[in-house]
């Protein structure tokens, strides 16, 4: 049934090691037809922020070319748990469905990744006993698999991850950027703010601020932002600071970015576990960015101490 079935044509032939061009012999020894007709999906649900989470099982009928988003769509369509109970549809985030918007991050079989590019056949190959879906651990849960990634964007604000060109005057054409510089910068510009790097980072720990009774929205927001600003900015923000400090116009506020990168919760929080680079779906050279920012921070600190 599988199109990438690569077993020996004659099932009676004993598997000869090495003769099949290095292809490992399939370990399910010929019973390909017994691929699961339904997939056991376990979802960690939570009805609202701050509430208890609970596991729920769903049986999803297998179809060719499924990804985790289509599994969730089927769960929503059925809205029935495996035991037949009618349940509220599982909530999740997604948008582009092609791994560029960064909204569908979740823990799939315990590992942070994009749901839209997580192919079911591949997952079942790795974990034949089903698929486990959980919301990210490092962000407050809004509902089910939907998390509040406000802190991720706050980090980008902290390091001013933009080119400052607002104004009324026509400044003419910008400076030229050499192809080498472009090649260096382009990978960093592909960051989609998915948060995988933060989820996997042992140094990035969850910050959840709960609104107090009688607290105004403004006061709560201020308190929440202050809490974020004490925490680690994360690999994505460090990489964006490097990207914009390397840009001829972005450079104009390089000092402000370095101030943020070396402020509380800045680059010094990185423990060089290098998980960020290992999980980044866009394969952004995050540890190179971190080391470059580390070098810039060294220079910045020397300047700050000796030039005043």
């Amino acid at each position: 049934m599988s199109t990438k079935h690569n077993g020996p044509a004659t099932a009676s032939t004993p598997p000869s090691t090495g003769a099949a061009g290095g292809e490992p012999a399939p370990h399910d020894s010929g019973d390909h037809l017994a691929l699961p007709r339904t997939i056991d999906v376990r979802v960690l649900r939570q009805d609202a922020p701050g509430q208890e989470s609970y596991w729920e099982r769903h049986a999803v009928a297998w179809e060719p070319n499924m990804n985790v988003i289509s599994v969730l769509q089927k769960i929503a369509a059925g809205a029935r748990a495996q035991d037949g109970r009618q349940v509220a549809p599982v909530a999740w985030d997604c948008n582009c469905l092609e791994e560029v918007c960064g909204s569908c991050t979740m823990l799939i079989n315990g590992r942070t990744r994009m749901a839209c590019s997580a192919l079911v056949d591949r997952l079942v190959e790795e974990h034949p006993d089903g698929i486990e879906l959980r919301p990210m651990l490092k962000f407050p849960v809004v509902r089910d698999l939907v998390v509040d990634r406000r802190r991720l964007f706050r980090s980008l604000e902290r390091v001013k991850a933009w080119v400052p060109v607002d104004g009324f005057y026509d400044h003419g054409a910008g400076p030229r950027i050499s192809p080498e510089e472009q090649e260096d910068a382009y990978p960093l510009s592909t960051c989609m703010s998915c948060g995988c790097c933060l989820e996997a980072c042992p140094q990035f720990t969850r910050i959840e601020t709960v609104r107090r009774d009688g607290e105004t929205e403004e006061a709560f927001e201020q308190r929440r932002t202050a809490a974020f600003d004490r925490g680690f900015i994360g690999a994505h923000a460090i990489s964006q600071a490097v990207l914009f400090n390397g840009h001829p116009i972005g450079k104009l506020i390089a000092d402000e970015r370095m101030e943020a990168v070396t402020d509380q919760g800045g680059i010094q929080m990185c423990g060089n576990a290098q998980n960020c680079v290992a999980v980044c779906p866009k394969s952004i050279p995050l540890t190179r960015s971190i080391a470059r920012a580390g070098r810039a921070a060294t220079m910045w600190a020397i300047r700050k101490i000796f030039d005043r």
């Binding site: 996997a200 042992p202 140094q203 720990t205 423990g271 060089n272 576990a273 290098q274 998980n275 290992a278």
Partner: peptide, 17 residues
């Protein structure tokens, strides 16, 4: 301040961390 997670992410760098 850290939260080791080698169980979920058993990469060399993380093991070293």
């Amino acid at each position: 301040g850290g939260l080791p997670n080698v169980g979920s992410y058993p990469y060399v760098g993380n093991i070293r961390y």
